[in-house]
Nucleic acid binder design. Structure first.
Lengths: 86, 86
DNA sequence: CCATATTATTGTGTTTACGCAACACCCTGA
DNA sequence: TCAGGGTGTTGCGTAAACACAATAATATGG
């Protein structure tokens, strides 16, 4: 089972599923299935989605699921803090 | 068309196709097809392969192909140099 | 209230990812 | 010289990724 964060990134950019579908060249329903976790896209589609959002594939897709947004944001803040503390 | 660097990483680790196939849970022929570029794997398989090699998916798969090894290695050396020059 | 956009769902169809089996070709090592 | 491992290829089967169309539900803005 593959987890993804497509909905989060899409909403943040203010894109509809139709918009995102057009941006990567698939049908809007395909984005719908994807966001609901109903399936496991091709790596080509994953690469295109990652390119649209300007992030690595691993930021969008994961085998083990993603921590909560709070954890992710706070985690990055901590890493940034550690970096500043250097 | 999706390009990949699976053969390079596999050879470097001294793995046969059978070994790699066993590590990610697919048939050896699937690895063969993949390396020959005959197809476009699922993002799940891509994530598993990336996990085996300990690299991001984007290091293994690309929409636009990869530069030559020399370019990649030299490029990283340059970036490292820039980093040291900071 | 009505019009429009977004989304969920369902159904049908094609293509392709992947499993499995078989065979042929090269190497290398006993 | 022969056996065995790695590889390329082909063919058949199944499941799933996607396309496309239609409908309904919700929400939002006029």
């Amino acid at each position: 089972m593959v987890h993804n964060q497509i909905t989060l990134f899409r909403i943040e950019r203010g894109l509809s599923r139709k918009d995102l579908a057009a941006a990567v060249g698939v049908n809007p329903q395909t984005i719908g299935f994807l966001e609901r976790g109903t399936y496991n896209p091709s790596v080509e589609l994953a690469l295109k989605l990652a390119a649209v959002f300007g992030v690595p594939v691993d930021t969008l897709f994961s085998l083990n699921g993603f921590p909560s947004l709070a954890t992710q944001i706070a985690g990055n803040a901590n890493r940034q803090k550690e970096f500043e503390d250097d």
